[in-house]
Design a protein around this nucleic acid. Structure first.
Length: 223
DNA sequence: GACCAGGCACATC
DNA sequence: GATGTGCATGGT
């Protein structure tokens, strides 16, 4: 266990040294972060940004606007983010839940205890573990570690976990070995996305990777 | 043209 | 319970 803590610390230090502070989440308001978390599912962030700009320009970046807008209109606005029919349903599902239970007021959500809020978010169709945890950490500042495909790749490649681990186990690896520090969780996840974008892809590119010197088992096609 | 992107729900075995 | 598939745009 002590070794795992040291490995995580080393990974964090190397990534921070290379990439610096990431200032996540790239969104202005709590609501914008929630919308972004849904729109970025399996989607490049640059595409999400286009959709968010469309929503801003249409004056739709507020819960009641998304709740009331026609689905066909919402589809047009978020089209650049891909899966636009699916994500329109997911945004509508979230708003339905928010208005049915909390009067559309995000400040009320902020009063809910973290574990219960997570369970409630997961009951909304279209919000899975990663989206729920992104909302908890980045929109509501709760000490929840967000894991994603990049996190899994880095952890597997550097022998922290077995390949067939599930989401909750991977999350536990980080939460059990790090202090529950919101700022640190924020930065660590963002840094893992950084190294994932540049190096820890399905076809890994390890040459020049800040983690290249650490033990890793997966062969790198471009080395 | 192929591959990839900050998942998730649902069908099928 | 594990595995496969649909969802869609845009950048490299």
């Amino acid at each position: 266990m002590q070794k795992t803590r040291e490995q995580l610390q080393t990974i964090y230090d190397l990534l921070f040294e290379r990439f610096g502070p990431q200032h996540w989440w790239p969104g202005q308001t709590c609501f914008e972060i929630i919308v972004g978390a849904i729109l970025t599912q399996n989607t490049n962030w640059t595409n999400v940004e286009k959709a968010i700009v469309n929503l801003q320009q249409a004056g739709c970046l507020e819960p009641d606007k998304i709740h009331e807008i026609e689905s066909a209109e919402l589809e047009k606005l978020i089209r650049p983010a891909g899966y636009f029919r699916l994500k329109t349903k997911r945004l509508k599902n979230f708003m339905q839940w928010l208005f049915d239970n909390y009067g559309g007021d995000l400040d009320v959500l902020d009063q809910i205890e973290t574990r219960r809020l997570r369970e409630e978010l997961l009951r909304v169709s279209g919000i899975g573990p990663e989206t729920a945890d992104s909302i908890l950490l980045y929109a509501f500042g709760r000490p929840v570690f967000v894991v994603d495909a990049y996190t899994a790749r880095v952890a597997v490649r550097h022998e922290l976990i077995e390949p067939d681990i599930d989401y909750e186990q991977l999350q536990y690896l980080f939460e059990a070995n790090l202090e529950p520090d919101v700022a640190r969780f924020n930065e660590f996840h963002a840094l893992l996305v950084c190294v994932g974008k540049d190096f820890c892809k399905p076809k890994p590119k390890c040459a020049g990777c800040p983690l290249e010197a650490l033990p890793h088992t997966i062969p790198c096609e471009y080395d």
